[in-house]
């Protein structure tokens, strides 16, 4: 493998990967990705794979497992970000791919899982919640009760209408994705680009200029197993 000079180091570093790594570190400190609010501060929830905040009428609610687990997930994301940066900077090293792959997974899978959970969650809430809770014209203990949920899908506003005998309540729901989510999405898109497309781009350029660095690096990695 070629020994890299300062100039070639700049040339051969996987810069989109480096940016992805930085974004991952920043994202890990940006808190929630998604917020849902019932009423005006009646119930507020802000969540991400490494952060959660649940407030009921101003009282913060804590779940023991999450209090321990989420900081560790946050630490993994930070470590993943740093590994992504190191792996992308030292792109010519044998271990770089493993390191950046590890790093990238720490943002890719949480984001994907998060999106799936949000979509499935809102779908189930909108379509099946009424099956489990008393719906229109159903009777409980002789009372006509009704529950009508019109929750938005991930983003937007809607209402939960509760109709009990003497009480009718309309609870507005507001859902929004935060800047943390969008930054995570950018990080993932950039990460995919850095892993799938950027090496080919640089390789093509490298070959056309007669450098052959990437071919040598790849051979080195293959040899390493």
């Amino acid at each position: 493998m070629k020994k890299k000079t300062g100039r070639s180091f700049v040339k051969y570093a996987n810069w989109p990967g480096v940016v992805t790594g930085f974004l991952m570190v920043i994202v890990s400190f940006m808190g929630s990705w998604w917020r849902v609010q019932f009423g005006d501060g009646f119930i507020e929830m802000a969540v991400s794979p490494f952060y959660y905040e649940a407030v009921f009428m101003g009282e913060e609610i804590s779940i023991p497992l999450l209090s321990y687990l989420l900081p560790a997930v946050q630490a993994l994301l930070i470590i993943g970000g740093f590994f992504m940066i190191i792996g992308s900077l030292f792109n010519y090293k044998d271990w770089s791919e493993k390191l950046s792959k590890f790093g990238f997974r720490k943002i890719f899978w949480p984001l994907l899982t998060f999106i799936i959970i949000l979509l499935v969650g809102t779908f189930l809430t909108n379509n099946f919640m009424g099956e489990f809770l008393p719906g229109d014209n159903q009777e409980i203990d002789g009372m006509d009760e009704g529950l009508d949920i019109e929750a938005p899908y991930v983003v937007g506003s809607g209402d939960i209408d509760v109709d009990l005998n003497e009480l009718t309540a309309s609870v507005p729901i507001e859902m929004s994705l935060t800047s943390g989510f969008w930054m995570a999405l950018v990080a993932v898109i950039l990460g995919i680009f850095s892993r799938k497309f950027y090496p080919d781009l640089v390789k093509r350029e490298d070959r056309s200029s007669g450098g052959g660095f990437y071919d040598a690096a790849e051979t080195g990695r293959r040899d390493m197993g």
């Binding site: 009646f42 003497e166 309540a169 309309s170």
Partner: peptide, 12 residues
């Protein structure tokens, strides 16, 4: 209206 929630109590 309490905390953004509209409540209608009837025939109390």
């Amino acid at each position: 209206e309490v905390m953004g929630i509209d409540l209608l109590l009837e025939d109390i």
